[in-house]
Design a protein around this nucleic acid. Structure first.
Lengths: 338, 338
DNA sequence: GTTGGCACTCTCTGTGGTGGAGTGCCAGTC
DNA sequence: GACTGGCACTCCACCACAGAGAGTGCCAAC
């Protein structure tokens, strides 16, 4: 159906449109991409490509621009992987050095991704499903108010307020001892199960306190699963200020909604490789004229969370995909090493 | 110099320009604000106001718009305090209910402020200078890697990685005991001083570990002072997409730079009341065509941090100031109550 | 299957003209 | 002396229009 030359033409149209930002005509195509045919031939091919839905004209007698379907074919079959520049590679290597905790790693990652791709970057907090409970602390703030603190083996610290109900320091210490003895080394999920069982084994005087603390623990482990997403590179939208209503505004609005971001990233999850959603392929209506390039990150065996960028459908897919892939891999390795 | 009527005219110009977004002429002014004089009289007064630098014309034979100086006078002397609507008041009351920790309070505050003012909101993390050390924990992650965790009396939890240098669990426990005994109840500043002295009193075998931990503690207390700022309501910039280059872009860029935000908010600090920086009064060059309305928040005796909004110089100052003031007061009270 | 030629279409740019809003100024009035 | 009505003037915003340029589709020829 589409012979080699038509594919080359589509590739050239996508490439040219992405870099020039203008509909591309047959003459320019022949000149800039050294196709050894005449513009007329290219026009015939373009007519076919248009009929098949890969390209379109903004209006009669204008050049062609790729459709979502055209970009899709380009991404699937035509985009040569563009290797990162050494500068970019070095940036990735050095950007993470000196990160002090997970927050910091996530913040640095988002900046890095935004800088390399020159787009808006989104990084989801890792769900360290392999991490185990390392330490559990109950700190008394006032007779009634306490704080349950959970530290996992990856160095993540979470806290939750807990109502101590006036329990004595001894009771609190007792409970802490029991919980630590029972839960250390377990995964969060198993820890919650175990804690649920534990409550029945507690002496009567510790039980009310135990119930309150374990409830807090449950909230902590269920509520947490990286509801959190960090965003960066928003000023990069400046490059699309001409398309304010179709591109800038919807992105700004989506960025404000954690839920939307999680959906955007979330639905690509499961794979460790880069996924691309182009235009209308996106699950979120207002972003129908933008694309999302995302990837899971983690170890070989375990995907922790996702990261990616969002930009106009007219983006440089090969470069963006290469950058997202490289950053995802690097962050995965970095976190695995601790 | 400026009699009562000229001030009324200035007030009317500011009000009209803010709501209509168009240069305002003498005729419209007379009609809409029931000035009991003729347009010609208003024109004479406007000529004076222009000469004094309070208003200007975008071009000859256009209406007038306020200058930064005009807005300043308006804010200082002419803006009647606009009370919050009951809906807004109720929003403030209910928005905070159910906040689980400081992160949550800050996030909710920023959303609230953005929603009420319909502008971009910025909230700085509170520096709870009155808070004291409540608990100090050293968690071992691996023989070499540990985590120093500091809990203060306000329920804030901070952590920092620390190199344990292979110290035995007994040594770690010993050090934890000593630190807790020595530091609990002290303010962060005093705690660091005390810890510095403590290192010399340590037995020789604990000393290297002690030095490492105390170094981490120092980092924690000095680095922390709310370097952190949270931003919300960015999509509200959509209302100014016509002024992309002068308003939207600089704001987006400033928002990416924590340092800039801290400066913006920081330089208004010290007072518990609302401060307004109009246009060129801002310390940050690119924001010269925007205004910042900010306020410290805390208790009567103690300012913890700042919050505010940033928007175009052409903003509804009375409403914005009222909202910022109300939110700052409410958050201060909310945090004080715990 | 490919190509050169040609008529056609549509956007973009610049030009000139017009209407309207608003001003500044002046002479007259209270 | 302050205010007002009138008037000439300025400048923007809007519109219509023409011409250039880019690009196309189609057709006949190779």
């Amino acid at each position: 159906m589409l012979d080699e030359r038509k594919l080359s033409i589509l590739r050239a149209i996508v490439t040219d449109y992405v870099s020039m930002r203008e509909p591309v005509g047959s003459r320019a195509l022949v000149e800039r991409y050294h196709l050894d045919v005449s513009p007329a031939t290219v026009r015939n091919d373009m007519a076919v490509l248009e009929e098949e839905g890969y390209i379109m004209q903004p209006h009669t007698s204008a050049g062609r621009i790729p459709t979502d379907k055209g970009y899709r074919l380009f991404v699937d079959r035509l985009g040569a992987v563009k290797p990162l520049s050494t500068a970019e590679r070095r940036a990735i290597e050095t950007f993470m050095a000196g990160a002090v905790d997970i927050d910091d790693v996530v913040r640095r990652t988002v900046r890095l991704l935004a800088q390399i791709t020159q787009q808006v970057a989104i990084v989801q907090y890792p769900i360290l499903s392999g991490a185990t409970v390392r330490h559990l602390e109950i700190v008394t703030l006032s007779p009634d108010r306490g704080l349950l603190i959970l530290v996992n083996s990856a160095g993540k610290v979470d806290q939750r307020p807990v109502d101590l109900g006036g329990a004595s320091p001894e009771l609190v210490a007792d409970l802490r001892g029991r919980l630590n003895a029972a839960l250390i080394g377990l995964t969060p999920t198993r820890a919650v199960e175990r804690a649920g069982a534990l409550v029945d084994e507690l002496p009567a005087d510790v039980r009310p306190l135990g119930a309150a603390v374990i409830a807090a623990l449950l909230e902590l482990t269920t509520a947490d699963p990286s509801t959190r997403v960090v965003v960066g590179g928003v000023p990069n939208l400046a490059r699309f200020s001409d398309q304010y209503e179709t591109t800038v505004r919807p992105v700004l609005e989506a960025l404000e909604e954690q839920v939307v971001l999680l959906r955007l990233l979330g639905e690509v999850a499961g794979t460790g490789d880069v996924t691309v959603r182009i235009g209308r392929e996106n699950p979120y209506e207002p972003l129908r004229s933008t694309s999302v390039v995302a990837s899971g990150y983690g170890t070989n065996s375990d995907i922790w969370a996702n990261l990616g960028v969002v930009g106009p459908t007219r983006m440089d897919y090969p470069s963006t995909m290469a950058a997202v892939r490289a950053v995802a891999r690097y962050v995965g390795r970095f976190l695995a090493e601790g």
